[in-house]
């Protein structure tokens, strides 16, 4: 039975990176009719035909208390209020605007694990705005910013009209080094191709075709990305044949248990020997329910997984997968060596 959950989109970005400007333009688009906007800060202006809820940040620790496995009580409460509204039936989407320093991972955790919310909402996607004027100066000092970029499905580079081509290349190089799987858009004065943006910003099965191209493409610019290396790095891995899905689940769940805080993002497609691939999408300890697709939609039949890691070396991942090769049924290949 196909359930129809409401997509929740998380919009994040560092202080002054243009989140609100982008949202003001974006939410006027017809796609967001009957959508709700939840903002982290009070004093935001209400937008026509949108419901506006304000939430003060409240975290409650779950389990071991790692950074991503925190329940955002404020968000859970606001989303519950939306569901309990008399007109909740018309709700077609929720946009959650975070504060500039917020970590999007607990929001994803809250929506995917709350006993009530998981039945009503799904993660639509994570959008991060990056200010091309200030990003080169901010990047070394603010780990929050690197994490926001690492977790994004879509990155919108703002204020491009205010920088020269050298700075622009530097910004793109750093973003690509941190997150090669995200689709990058450019916004000038909050204007951009919103239809293309909406098509890219969705984890749902209907649009999983959109996940494929940027999940399986290892960006050529990565070859030069070592000049931008920080402690956060991305690793793209393939295998020399189809892999055993159960064995991969054992390895991956063990990795996330032991090192989940260091696996900022995992995204990719897996050849498990079936007619179609399995689409994998995760944020730290939280793995979105994998999609088993019916076909490869014209793409090469090959596993491509990109991990965005902090504090784990690529060799550790490859050595571990190599040790599991007899269980996985294939040997790992490092793609961006």
């Amino acid at each position: 039975m196909k359930t129809d959950k409401i997509p929740a989109f998380v919009v994040t970005g560092f202080l002054g990176s243009g989140k609100t400007t982008l949202l003001q333009k974006m939410l006027r688009h017809g796609r967001w009719r009957n959508s709700a906007l939840i903002v982290n800060e009070f004093g935001q202006a209400s937008i026509d035909h949108h419901l506006l809820n304000a939430a003060a940040e409240e975290l409650s620790l779950i389990g071991g208390g790692c950074a991503c496995c925190q329940k955002r009580e404020d968000l859970a409460r606001e989303l519950s209020k939306l569901i309990n509204r008399k007109d909740s039936q018309i709700l077609t989407g929720v946009v959650i605007e975070t504060t500039g320093l917020a970590d999007p991972a607990p929001m994803v955790f809250t929506i995917l694990t709350d006993p009530m919310l998981q039945h009503h909402f799904r993660i639509g996607g994570i959008l991060t705005t990056v200010d091309s004027v200030n990003y080169p100066r901010q990047t070394g000092n603010h780990p929050e910013l690197s994490k926001q970029i690492s977790l994004a499905d879509v990155i919108v580079v703002t204020k491009r009209d205010l920088v020269d081509s050298v700075t622009e290349e530097q910004v793109f190089g750093r973003i690509r080094a941190l997150n090669p799987t995200a689709k990058i858009f450019i916004s000038e004065h909050g204007n951009m191709d919103f239809n293309a943006l909406f098509a890219a910003l969705d984890w749902s099965a209907e649009t999983s075709g959109n996940i494929l191209p940027h999940a399986i493409t290892v960006d050529k610019k990565l070859e030069n990305s070592h000049i931008y290396q920080t402690e956060t790095q991305s690793v793209s891995i393939s295998f020399d044949g189809p892999i055993d899905w159960s064995a991969f689940g054992v390895w991956m769940s063990m990795l996330l248990f032991a090192r989940g805080e260091h696996v900022l993002r995992v995204k990719g497609i897996l050849d498990v020997g079936n007619d179609g691939p399995v689409v994998l999408n995760g944020v730290q300890h939280i793995i979105h329910p994998p999609e088993h697709l019916s076909d490869w939609s014209g793409h090469d039949r090959q596993t491509r997984i990109t991990f965005i890691l902090r504090g784990i070396h690529a060799e550790e991942m490859i050595n571990s997968l190599h040790a599991f090769r007899h269980l996985l049924g294939a040997r790992p290949i490092l793609l961006n060596a």
Binding site: L255, F257, A258, E316, A323, F324, R325, H326, L327
Partner: peptide, 30 residues
Amino acid sequence: SEVWTEAQNLAGQPVDPTDSRLVNHLSLIG
């Protein structure tokens, strides 16, 4: 998820797929 939590409790040591001792052990079996 529960298996790894309980395995670590019962084993009394960290359970980690990147642990070099486990990697060497499984590599030999492989």
